[in-house]
Simulated scan of single mutants.
Amino acid sequence: MLQALLIFALQILYVPILTLRTIFLVKSQTKAAAGVGLLEAAIYIVALGIVFQDLSNFYNIAGYVLGFGVGLFLGGKLEAKLAIGYVTYHVNLVERSDELVSSLREAGFGVTVFTGQGINSVRYRLDIVSRRSREQELLDIVESIEPKAFMTSYELRSFKGGYITSSMKKRAKKFKQKEETNRKDSQ
């Protein structure tokens, strides 16, 4: 029974590490993926080795299977918490919204505005690039100003140039300071 608990614990470690390795590979961070992969392989060999020592031991097999399932759950939570990478949003509007553009820029998001022809009228599209860790903040701003906006999102694998550099970090810092000042003033 102690072996089954060890296998369970190893799987709880192994699967989130597997998740991280996969994320790093998808994000083209091969050095990080290789480093994490070493740890992943070591845990995998130990856990599977214990299971294969006695395939008639149901508890060891159950520990492996249950640990894998719980590990997947934890890996998903870890991925969402880390929010590695960037996302781009296309926000489509029926009318131009300078308020939305200004609010997004003040919050430190890069925004490009396009004008296009829809089926019945002129439409406006905002292209917004954000760190995944700030995605909910972006969505909250859009929802508060343009709740009927049509939005699509894409994860970015790579990009070069543009606004998402040091100026974005500076604006985000200013925006947070402004929010803190507003909160203190309203209390």
Rank of each mutant, 00 (worst) to 15 (best):
L2Q: 07
A9W: 06
L13M: 14
V15W: 01
L18K: 06
L20W: 01
Q29N: 08
G35D: 08
V36C: 08
L38S: 14
L39V: 15
E40G: 08
A41Q: 04
A42M: 08
I43D: 02
I45L: 09
V46K: 12
V46A: 08
G49Y: 03
I50S: 03
V51H: 06
L55T: 00
L55P: 02
S56Y: 09
A62S: 04
G63C: 04
Y64F: 08
V65H: 06
G67D: 03
F68N: 09
V70F: 08
G71Y: 00
G71M: 03
L72E: 04
L72K: 02
G76S: 13
E79G: 02
E79Y: 02
K81Y: 09
L82V: 12
L82F: 06
I84Q: 00
G85D: 06
G85N: 03
Y89H: 04
H90T: 12
H90Q: 10
V91G: 02
L93F: 07
D98K: 10
E99C: 11
S103I: 03
L104W: 01
R105F: 13
F114P: 02
G118I: 11
G118L: 14
N120Q: 14
V122R: 04
D127T: 11
E135T: 06
E135F: 01
E137M: 12
D140V: 14
V142E: 04
E143T: 14
I145E: 02
K148W: 11
A149V: 13
M151S: 13
T152R: 01
S153M: 06
L156T: 02
R157W: 10
R157L: 09
F159T: 07
G161H: 11
I164Q: 07
T165M: 15
K170G: 08
R171E: 11
K174E: 13
F175C: 04
K178A: 11
K178F: 05
E179G: 06
E179F: 07
T181H: 14
R183M: 13
D185M: 13
Q187S: 11
